[in-house]
């Protein structure tokens, strides 16, 4: 899907009342997910994870280990899904692809001078091209938050559209870095800009800035996706990333997706978790739910 909109076609964004958002989020959190719903939800969470390593000290060894884990979440337990994707820097795309490709696991690459985005457009385009050429299925770009906060929304829009051009068949996730946008009104505006500029997914955070994927932020972005769908009939995906480290929080994310967007979005085609440590907590919950016995982290491999 390539949305072809011009900046002046981005509709005005509704204002957001943060207190109201917090109340709404509390309602999602009061949903009680038990028994069969819990088990189904937990497995869904696993299948939606973008298992991530994005560190300056990443090495081939580290990436190799993580990629193996992506395909073998917990060998002691048959019938578990694999994760949706691994997420790495462009330099690791080729390696990652060679390991996980055969399991149907996608390779996502951050790009556009991740995480700051402070580079000229041609550098960002080159960065993206490199990742795509090395086999990235998905591109996780960052927006220029400085430009956004300076009011240069057109610039942000054009940049996203330019990156979308070079993605080719790779799906584009646009990282808003909500922790730097400071208000939910900004989050909503940035979401609308990203969606109309051609994002296949919108994503909360790089994982480098706190706060990251709070439920309030994710809810606000889901509403933007909902409104776009209502206006155009086109689906956009959502990826909260950073800060989702336990199963309960992940399940409440799914509750939000179900109630705001609908069950059509409850698949890793349209919803992802960007996380490095979520998988093990979910695995522990799955085993606990099956056996009734509380689990220890010692029995679940780190990566």
């Amino acid at each position: 899907m390539t949305a072809k909109y011009r900046f002046n076609e981005v509709p005005p964004s509704p204002s957001i009342d943060k207190v109201g958002v917090e109340e709404r989020v509390k309602r999602f959190q009061s949903r009680s997910i038990k028994t069969t719903a819990k088990m189904q939800g937990l497995k869904m969470v696993l299948s939606m994870i973008d298992l991530t390593t994005l560190e300056g000290k990443d090495t081939e060894g580290k990436v190799r280990q993580m990629c193996f884990k992506a395909a073998h979440l917990h060998n002691g337990h048959p019938g578990l899904p694999v994760v949706a994707a691994v997420c790495v820097y462009p330099s690791m795309v080729g390696l990652a692809k060679s390991i996980v490709g055969k399991y149907g696991i996608k390779v996502a690459s951050v790009s556009t001078a991740f995480p700051s985005g402070q580079a000229p457009l041609d550098v960002k385009i080159a960065d993206t091209k490199y990742a795509v050429e090395h086999g990235a299925d998905e591109i996780d770009m960052v927006i220029s938050r400085g430009k956004f906060l300076a009011g240069e929304h057109t610039f942000v829009f054009d940049e996203i559209a330019a990156i979308k051009e070079v993605c080719g068949s790779a799906r584009l996730k646009v990282i808003l870095e909500t922790g730097e946008l400071a208000t939910l009104d900004n989050v909503r505006r940035a979401s609308d800009i990203a969606i109309y500029a051609g994002a296949d997914f919108i994503k909360t955070s790089t994982g480098k800035i706190q706060p990251a994927a709070t439920l309030q932020v994710t809810y606000t972005m889901l509403q933007a996706i909902r409104d776009f769908y209502d206006e155009t009939g086109k689906m956009v995906g959502m990826k909260p990333a950073g800060g989702i480290s336990n199963a309960k929080l992940a399940l409440h994310n799914l509750v939000m997706v179900k109630e705001v967007l609908g069950e059509e979005w409850l698949t890793n085609k349209w919803f992802r978790f960007g996380a490095s440590s979520l998988a093990n907590d979910v695995l522990m919950q799955i085993l606990k739910t099956e056996s009734g016995i509380y689990q220890s982290a010692d029995y679940f491999t780190l990566d």
Partner: peptide, 14 residues
């Protein structure tokens, strides 16, 4: 996409 596969109902939580 098929909605059926994605159906996720909240189980009873009495």
């Amino acid at each position: 996409m098929s909605t059926k596969n994605n159906a996720w109902e909240y189980a009873d939580s009495i």
